[in-house]
Design a binder for these strands. Structure first.
Lengths: 121, 121
DNA sequence: AACAAGTATGAAGTATACTATATAGTTCGT
DNA sequence: ACGAACTATATAGTATACTTCATACTTGTT
């Protein structure tokens, strides 16, 4: 079990941001019953996984709300199996859409580059 | 030449947002010299292209500042040919990175889906 | 014991990207 | 000429995602 500082070091995400994510409901740490002198929060390896997932998903334009949907489908017990699969399938479609758009942007930029290279002909 | 309303209709981007983009320096319209009764701004087809590009680039997680870099390389005369190509090559690399990340996210979600489907075995 | 470093909490501040509001002038159809 | 619809400008407000600050307690090292 890890403290927040170690979590930050393993993922490169600032402590403040990790706290913000936790407050947003993207994951929870646990207070250890046996420790009574402080109220430090401990995090499991699942939290590291989630943080890495959040990093990737954010980099490609998903909002924290969208990421939360996936993470909830991923771990929350309250949600039905069918509902979880539905959320994930929806995200998979969105990702394919984004890949398509990235390829379109790439094509645009390639055309633009070609034009610049040949502009004084 | 188009007025802002037509621009909005062709792209689906709200007028307020288009004005905001113009103020941000993503493109400029032109005032017509010959028209003296008003100060309406007219936009060419290049602006429609730019707006469509902005839509796509935003959808895949580029910020307006990053998009401005590309658009400046695309059209600004002040910037040297070499500098333009450099900017575009950097963006192309970023896009490949994003595609890689999207594929990683997709894999994560697929694993997650598999786990949910088999969770009560 | 002292003190740097780590942790928790709450609240305020910042950056980005809009979105809405108010005001005022213009154009167009009838 | 009237009114609806369109345009410009400036300013304020909102949502998202942090980031900083202030306060206070805890842990580990010397």
């Amino acid at each position: 079990m890890k403290l927040i500082n170690q979590l930050s070091k393993e993922t490169g995400i600032p402590i403040g941001t990790i706290r913000f994510y936790e407050k947003t409901g993207l994951f929870n740490g646990e207070k250890k019953e046996e420790v009574k002198t402080n109220n430090y929060v401990y995090y499991g390896d699942d939290v590291v996984d989630k943080l890495r997932f959040i990093q990737m998903a954010k980099a490609v334009g998903f909002t924290l709300a969208e990421i939360k949907e996936v993470v909830d489908a991923w771990y929350k017990k309250q949600i039905s199996k069918k509902a979880k699969i539905e959320v994930l399938d929806k995200k998979l479609l969105q990702i394919d859409e984004k890949i398509k758009e990235l390829k379109a942007v790439k094509k645009q930029i390639a055309i633009c580059k070609f034009n610049i290279q040949n502009e004084d002909l």
